[in-house]
């Protein structure tokens, strides 16, 4: 084996493009699942808060299960479950479904916390002003609650962005899978894994800094 490390052999410009495209796919699957998962999760959170017997008996344990089983197991399980019930979903669709439910299960807790953070007196005041239940929810609870739990929501969203790397087990070529493919071909593991890390860092770090800044500004 040669003692010198030759960095750029076999790793060309088109490979950077390949990785950028894969980063786009990472962004695609995580953005869609975060968007749908947030909407679903908010509804779930509201159901949990309202505390109907159905929600606490059925919804809460199901959401809890998605938080207590590793995402990678969920993905493999779902991917192999789909053909059993006679459907056919590709890696992207299966990954999207599981990531969305996973996001929803995490957001549900955040949303419930947000609704709880709006005090009872505030809500009674809104109702006393003549607002309907939905108006109270829309114009009082939503703005105040969002503000209270926005940082934790950002945490969930960034977590999903990072966890989307696991969809690679199903064969979806996202950023980490792409870097694995390139590592196998070029035998430049350190360089390529560092580029992949830089991509992730560049996606995640600015958002987390921005949310920390917002949190500080809002808490003043």
């Amino acid at each position: 084996m040669e003692p010198t490390i030759s960095f750029f052999s076999g790793f060309g410009r088109q490979d950077i493009l390949f990785m950028a495209e894969a980063a786009w796919r990472t962004l695609l699957i995580s953005t869609i699942s975060i968007a749908i998962g947030t909407i679903l999760g908010t509804i779930f959170g509201w159901l949990l808060y309202e505390g109907r017997i159905w929600a606490t008996l059925f919804l809460a344990p199901v959401l809890d299960a998605f938080r207590s089983v590793p995402l990678i197991i969920q993905l493999v399980l779902f991917y192999n479950f789909v053909p059993i019930i006679g459907l056919s979903l590709d890696a992207f669709q299966s990954g999207l479904v599981i990531l969305t439910i996973y996001t929803a299960s995490l957001v549900a807790n955040v949303a419930r916390g947000g609704i709880e953070s709006v005090g009872k007196p505030m809500r009674r005041a809104a109702r006393s002003l003549g607002m309907s239940y939905w108006q109270d929810l829309r114009y009082v609870v939503l703005p105040i609650g969002t503000r209270a739990v926005f940082p934790s929501w950002v945490g969930v969203a960034l977590g999903v962005l990072k966890d989307s790397a696991l969809v690679s087990v199903l064969g979806y070529v996202e950023l980490l899978r792409a870097s694995q493919i390139l590592m196998t071909r070029t035998q430049e593991p350190l360089l390529i894994i560092s580029i992949a890390g830089a991509f992730y860092f560049a996606l995640s770090y600015p958002i987390s800094r921005y949310s920390a800044k917002l949190e500080k500004r809002w808490s003043q």
């Binding site: 990072k162 790397a165 980490l176 992730y200 860092f201």
Partner: peptide, 8 residues
């Protein structure tokens, strides 16, 4: 540690 996937 906080801004890259654990798998990475």
């Amino acid at each position: 540690a906080r801004n890259t996937p654990a798998l990475f």
